[in-house]
Write a protein that binds this DNA or RNA. Structure first.
Lengths: 200, 200
DNA sequence: TTACTTAGAGAACGTGCGTACGCTAAATTG
DNA sequence: CAATTTAGCGTACGCACGTTCTCTAAGTAA
């Protein structure tokens, strides 16, 4: 009843599934993803959706990975033209605030949603969430370290403290945007990050 | 098959249901609560559990309310002996960091988990989450305001910015504890809060 | 062309969910 | 005491879930 599609078309189908899955997950969590809902939304059969991932767990992980890649494209890569260190760090932070202020996904940052959703549940999904957060934090830490080495930040600067406060600002911004629709929060996050970097 | 219990015993049963529900929800979210699991854990029937709340939505809201009351007992009330203003604010903040460092619930702070879980889903549960967060923020804001009025904080002090940074520290602490089991995060949160309050 | 592979459909399965109903026996009320 | 209320049980319902099959037609490779 259904003609087979070419390998390229199958890849496109997979991409459409993941795009829709990321939208759903951003609003309702990775557990809000349902193969039946995806099938209905994309006008295909449940088994057609299922075939691309094999298990729901794999679908969830692929969705998270896709969201992280999109995040990286928008936040980190545009800043790679800046010199490593404080310049690049400031660019990355600015992009991340912009991202949280006007997210690609309707329910905000999926990494943030997945963090609190899966931090208490052992398994492959949790591991994937931890991996993604680890990579993001390492990206920030690298430029913080370089900035200290280049004396763009003072000697004895507490890198881990700054990292904590930058992450904190992002989490609070996402919460303020999603729960309270507080559009002033982005400027608060920018100020908080600036203060974290301009410590005596 | 089951003898009826007294009103007092029924209240105790309700309390046991909510305690177990809060534990589950802290680890797996408010959606992780299922009537069947609660019935099994408490060795009673599904309909027995169901009877106390009428709908699952009410059970979820009651669970959140119970967790918030426990939070309040441990974080806010012990600080009410301090003078309103900066003293009380510092006590409340210290208690909240202690709470996040060693939470009553196995999966950490339920208010935080519920925040990201329901911020994108309209309905009574989301309203309850927003209410709970609003009350917590108002508690903090009140003492910040008093502190400025009493000149314990400098004139022109940005109350909303400090509030943002205090909330941010709590969210980041919860994330660090739950995802990475980072026991150093509590001290980072304490320092972040102190810095938010000691701005020039 | 032939042989093989595969994207996707369709139907069926077992499971767990929230909810509804009727029942019972003890607590409560009068 | 008698009448009423109610905590909790047992059963059953319809539904949505993830997964597993079989089937097909078109893509792909020889």
């Amino acid at each position: 009843m259904s003609p087979r599609r070419s390998a390229a078309e199958a890849l496109a189908t997979r991409g459409r599934i993941l795009s829709r899955a990321a939208e759903i997950a951003s609003e309702e969590g990775l557990d809000g993803i349902t193969i039946g809902r995806l099938a209905e939304a994309l006008e295909m059969s449940k088994s057609g959706v299922h075939k691309h991932f094999g298990t729901k767990e794999s679908l969830q992980i692929s969705t998270l990975d896709k969201a992280f890649v999109d995040f990286w494209h928008r936040v980190v890569e545009p800043a790679l033209g800046e010199h490593p260190g404080l310049r690049r760090l400031r660019a990355v932070c600015a992009n991340s605030v912009d991202y949280l202020e006007a997210p690609l996904l309707p329910g905000g940052c999926l990494m943030t949603a997945a963090l609190t959703e899966y931090d208490g549940r052992p398994g492959r999904v949790r591991d994937a969430v931890a991996e993604v957060w680890s990579r993001w934090q390492e990206q920030l830490r690298t430029d913080l370290t370089v900035a200290v080495e280049n004396a763009e930040l003072p000697d004895g600067f507490d890198i881990d403290q700054a990292l904590f406060e930058i992450i904190a600002a992002g989490l609070a911004l996402n919460a303020a945007m999603q729960l309270q629709h507080d559009r002033t929060a982005a400027d608060r996050a920018r100020l908080a990050i600036e203060r974290a970097l301009s410590r005596p």
